[in-house]
């Protein structure tokens, strides 16, 4: 049996240890917010957090994350300390009207959330290096603005506006 702790819930699954986390989430647990894009860790659509670190779940076997705290897009807001329905990053995504088709945005939001949790004021090069996900609708300019918006809000009110993500 494989034991996974996802969004605070621990589940026992009778699955192969080498099954990628993505397919355990999508096919075994019905958590469809995490997306399949490439299967080779090249696009980031499947990004989740394991102990706060961004992980591309399509190439991560479940056996490797048995002892970790896994957070998916569905659990991002519930894990945010003192946050309500959405995290500051999710709210910024709405404010800047970022998503188009929306398919890549779960992974984008997870990648950005992990970055900002680790580094509340990253420079442009760090952002570009850390958020290497693919968006075919080309929402990059708006993602960039939304990230800067979160950074600015945090700088203005570090105690109240963020406090989110894992």
């Amino acid at each position: 049996m494989i034991e996974l702790t996802i969004n605070g819930n621990t589940r026992q699954l009778d699955i192969e240890p080498e099954m990628p986390l993505l397919w355990a989430l999508r096919n075994e647990l019905g958590l469809t917010g995490t997306k399949f894009g490439c299967g080779i860790a090249a696009c980031g659509a499947c990004t989740v957090h394991v102990d706060g670190q961004p992980v591309r779940s399509c190439v991560t076997p479940v056996s490797a994350v048995q002892n970790g705290q896994i957070t998916t897009i569905e659990g991002l807001a519930q894990n945010a300390a003192g946050s309500a329905a959405r995290t500051a990053v999710q709210q910024a995504w709405i404010e800047h009207q970022v998503p188009q088709c929306g398919y890549c945005q779960s992974g984008m939001i997870m990648a950005v959330s992990a970055l900002l949790a680790a580094n509340p004021n990253p420079d442009d090069a760090t952002i570009e290096r850390s958020v290497s996900n693919v968006c075919r609708c080309g929402t990059y300019p708006r993602i960039s603005k939304a990230i800067r918006g979160v950074i600015a809000d945090h700088a203005a009110q570090p105690d109240t506006t963020r406090g989110d993500t894992v």
């Binding site: 469809t32 997306k35 897009i73 569905e74 999710q90 929306g102 945005q105």
Partner: peptide
Amino acid sequence: RIDIPAKVDGSAMFGI
């Protein structure tokens, strides 16, 4: 856009 809130929390449903 009315479809954006569901596209930031994983609840938007695609064919897949």
